[in-house]
Design a protein around this nucleic acid. Structure first.
Lengths: 219, 219
DNA sequence: GTAATAGTGTCTATCAGACATTATAAC
DNA sequence: GTTATAATGTCTGATAGACACTATTAC
């Protein structure tokens, strides 16, 4: 028996199967000085419901490209590098039909969201218990869990800070991600081996100026 | 404006979009006394190629159900509880067309694979570098990484052993998953608080009989 | 008896956590 | 000078890792 690339092993062609629509939904997080971790939400034009930005996958499109497109179209945000979290596959989860949704996460400097639309986007605390459609609350929880694990022990892997920063700035970013205060001495001692001092000093601060560091390239 | 549940925000209906086929592929792992972690492979009837068992998602089907169906049909194995790993989404990854594949992992006692088909299934070491289609090597690597993280510090969470076992049996199972020897004293001391002694003893062994334990219910 | 494995005791090096001290800026 | 923050030093309690010793079986 020769292989027919357009048939699977049961002999059916691909189009013999009904196929699901595939969507992407993305939790875009950033830090807010007062509120800590906040998540980007967009208002749907049809029913006014706030939700995570998402879209249907277009023909032949990569998931990451669909995420980028949805963020550009619905929030006017670009340049992100989303990572997959989970596929939500309950056939009844979307009233519009059979829709699989691949949840994604990314976190960016808040300035990267400066271009976002005014009236149709907002930033809400990641822990807020307000109304969201479908599985979006679960997505946010998974996104936060993912980031907390990712940030443990590594100096700001997603560049929430610029290339140079003081250890205080680094610790405050990590505390916002972790959602709890971190021990000052221990934080410095675990991070410093992974940093390179620049020699330059911070200025305009209250007490003794702090040294500026940059991330040590892994390896 | 009222919401139309059968249109998305751009006004297209769901059927206006081309949809991908969605497949599942599963790395089913078990322990082999000699070879350590081994993975279940099936031979495709059309071209004789060995690969991870997989199938296309049927209309309205859950991913976990498709995994269960593929394992029953292609390997005569059932009763598994697969977990998602990753979606492979390269539009050109499958020569038969546009196919997204959701990779899954599970690990079971080897007796659970006792019913598997003779000529069309085999167990191969998870680290073997033999030829596999598509992204199946990546799936196995992710599966092993997932299980190693899952087994760290917890006594056999996926019940590779029965309800009762000695600490030696437990350590050997963990060593096979970890792919390296584990320290005897430390292993006992971290595991024992998570175990309940049954009072019964192992018998028929070489040296002093070992006490049998069962897992302590979490909490 | 010997060999083999189970289980326990103890020492050490490491490290998270806490606290104290010194250094250097703004005011 | 005082106040605030940075940076460093030191102590302590917990624990991974190593080793030794005792206990109990098969042979």
């Amino acid at each position: 028996m020769t292989a027919n690339p357009y048939r699977d092993s049961s002999g059916k062609t691909l189009t013999d199967y009904e196929r699901p629509s595939v969507a992407v939904d993305t939790a875009v997080l950033t830090l807010d000085d007062e509120r800590g971790l906040v998540v980007l939400e967009v208002r749907r034009p049809d029913d006014g419901q706030w939700s995570l930005p998402g879209t249907f996958l277009h023909a032949g499109e990569r998931l990451a490209d669909a995420v980028a497109r949805s963020l550009k179209d619905k929030a006017n945000v670009d340049g992100l590098h989303p990572r997959q979290l989970h596929v939500f596959d309950d056939p009844k989860r979307d009233s519009r039909g059979w829709v699989l949704s691949v949840a994604h996460v990314d976190i960016v400097r808040s300035e990267r969201l400066g271009s976002r639309f005014d009236g149709t986007t907002r930033l809400m605390p990641a822990g807020a218990r307000h109304r969201l459609p479908h599985d979006h609350r679960k997505i946010i929880k998974q996104a936060v869990d993912y980031l907390r694990a990712r940030y443990e022990g590594r100096p700001d892997p997603d560049h929430l800070l610029g290339d140079e920063f003081t250890i205080l700035q680094l610790r405050q970013a990590h505390e916002h991600v972790a959602g709890r205060p971190l021990q000052r001495d221990w934080f410095r001692r675990t991070m410093e081996p992974q940093l390179i001092p620049t020699g330059a000093m911070s200025s305009g601060t209250r007490g003794r100026p702090a040294e500026l560091f940059r991330r040590r390239p892994p390896g």
